[in-house]
């Protein structure tokens, strides 16, 4: 089944996902994505005229909590997984504007 996934589609998604791909990877992903999208496309063949959209697979609604403060992490723990920090904040490459 042809789904019309081309390398430009892969490159666009890669750009949005901030991924750098080699030419080979692009080729491989065109194939893989075509298969996935093709599989999903099969679903379109089902007539869903009278079926309500499914927003969630669980038959559960209203998982709500009350507005009560619980203690936050100590700052040291919050920062502990960061590649770079200054004891107060996370450090990242410069963000301008």
């Amino acid at each position: 089944m042809t789904t019309g996934i081309e390398s430009k589609d892969v490159l666009k998604v890669a750009k949005l996902a901030k991924l750098q791909l080699t030419e080979e990877e692009v080729k491989r992903l065109v194939d893989e994505l075509s298969q996935i999208v093709g599989y999903v496309d099969q679903l379109s063949s089902v007539d869903t005229t009278n079926v309500a959209p499914l927003d969630h697979v669980l038959d559960v609604t209203d998982a709500l909590r009350d507005d009560i403060v619980i203690s936050s992490l100590p700052r040291e723990s919050a920062l502990s997984n960061a590649p770079k920090e200054d004891g107060e904040t996370f450090l990242v490459p410069p963000v301008l504007g």
């Binding site: 919050a78 770079k84 200054d86 490459p93 963000v95």
Partner: peptide, 9 residues
């Protein structure tokens, strides 16, 4: 003088 941006979450 720091080259980094600081993030407060």
């Amino acid at each position: 003088g720091s080259a980094d941006s600081r993030i407060d979450l």
